[in-house]
Design a protein around this nucleic acid. Structure first.
Lengths: 233, 233
DNA sequence: TTGCAGACCGACCGGTCGGTCTGTATGATG
DNA sequence: CATCATACAGACCGACCGGTCGGTCTGCAA
């Protein structure tokens, strides 16, 4: 009992000063990210994960109380990276179009950096496996949350909310079409994430690995143009 | 027990004469589609499925030799519906823009008709669970297929190929931007499918069920405008 | 030197997994 | 009537599942 670990990254206000990476824990998260991304929650066994990390299964349960806790930690880890990428981008400078470009480019670059992230995000948004479905707290119609939100859901809600604000400012200024923000957010997220989750299908379509340097730099141009075209007035 | 009505649509009464669909088989496919869509391949057990269908587990194995065969049949079933929707649309009439609109609208309408289809498609495109990854036969760089293609993969390849041809004609006529077709296809597919796979997230964003009549009719307008804006010159 | 905490292992638990085997009720066919 | 295929049910199998338990080893502090 009394398991919840106090020691962890300062969650959000990162910058630097990462104190103590206990190595094993990070390695578990790193390997688990890859496995969960490709196999899904129930497609990955703790024994398999332990073997690939190079630890015993019990060691995993020493670091994470349950499999679900591990899965949540993995999800939160990639969301932290996305948040970090956004914080480092100029998403608050210039007109809404420039902000949109910075936003899109930051997400694309973050997703391009580690391959499993895109698939994992797509799973988190679509899957219903460990937990019923992801939630964002209050919906657009103001329905109150019917259950406790998980850490990564709060983080995701923050990201979505920030993007929704950008959209609404752009619409108010007349730079963007008067789109329903819900549909627009889903369009953008789907476009951004699906490419990096498309794996071999994407490779077959673009003719090379979707994570190769040339494919990513082409992607940065194309997705920006596509989304601008879809949103601008 | 034994509540679900036996009445079933003749699945795809297109063209040919389907002889005698033994009812149970269709029922299994119908229930399995819902379960696989929300739980994923390895998140659904044959016992659970059997219980929900109202049959014994052995009955499932009587109709489908393995779980993977059942999964493939379920995937192929929704692809057949999408294909059917496309065949019934005016995707060969008018200029490329009109064809694009018809194409997009046909897919949206098909996906809006049964809720699990979108999630299942997203899974089929992203998951790596039962089979390594989906393939389309020859890639854009002309690599030959390294393994036997499954039925639904052939069907998917046909659909993608037809859409790629539409894109290229539009580009040749100067109506579409000179986009790399691979990226463009991924953009369109991601935008089209993700909405209907977004579940509670989508509901929170659009403020009502993503399958409600008003949400779907709004979606038809919005996605069409978004994709046209992203593709047109 | 003692004591305690974190990291880790191997064995084991009840339960579930996909899949097989045997048997049987039913309806069509000869 | 006998025969045979279809369409199921129920018992069962070995493998594997997430999770727990007792115990070991190491490092650090008193």
């Amino acid at each position: 009992m009394m398991i919840l670990m106090p020691a962890n990254s300062p969650t959000s206000l990162d910058d630097e000063v990462e104190i103590r990476p206990p190595d094993s824990r990070d390695k578990i998260l790193e390997v688990a990210e890859g496995l969960f991304a490709y196999g899904g929650y129930s497609g990955v066994g703790m024994r398999q994960l332990a073997a690939m990390v190079g630890l015993s299964k019990s060691a995993l349960f020493h670091h994470f109380p349950t499999k679900i806790d591990l899965y949540e930690a993995v999800l939160d880890r990639v969301l932290v990276r996305i948040e970090h990428g956004l914080n480092g981008a100029a998403i608050h400078e210039g007109d809404p179009v420039a902000q949109l470009d910075a936003w899109v480019d930051a997400v694309v670059c973050t997703l391009a950096e580690d391959a499993p992230a895109g698939r994992l995000m797509m799973r988190a948004l679509v899957d219903e496996e460990p937990f019923p479905a992801i939630s964002l707290g209050v919906g657009a119609n103001g329905a109150e949350p019917d259950r406790e939100l998980m850490i990564f859901e709060v983080r995701l809600a923050g990201i979505v909310e920030r993007f929704g604000g950008l959209l609404e400012r752009g619409i108010a200024e007349g730079v963007f079409r008067a789109v329903p923000t819900g549909d627009a957010i889903l369009n953008v997220v789907g476009t951004l994430v699906f490419y990096f989750a498309s794996g071999d299908l994407g490779e077959a379509l673009v003719g090379e690995s979707i994570f190769s340097h040339s494919a990513v730099s082409r992607r940065r141009r194309e997705v920006s143009q596509f989304i601008r075209g879809g949103l601008l007035a």
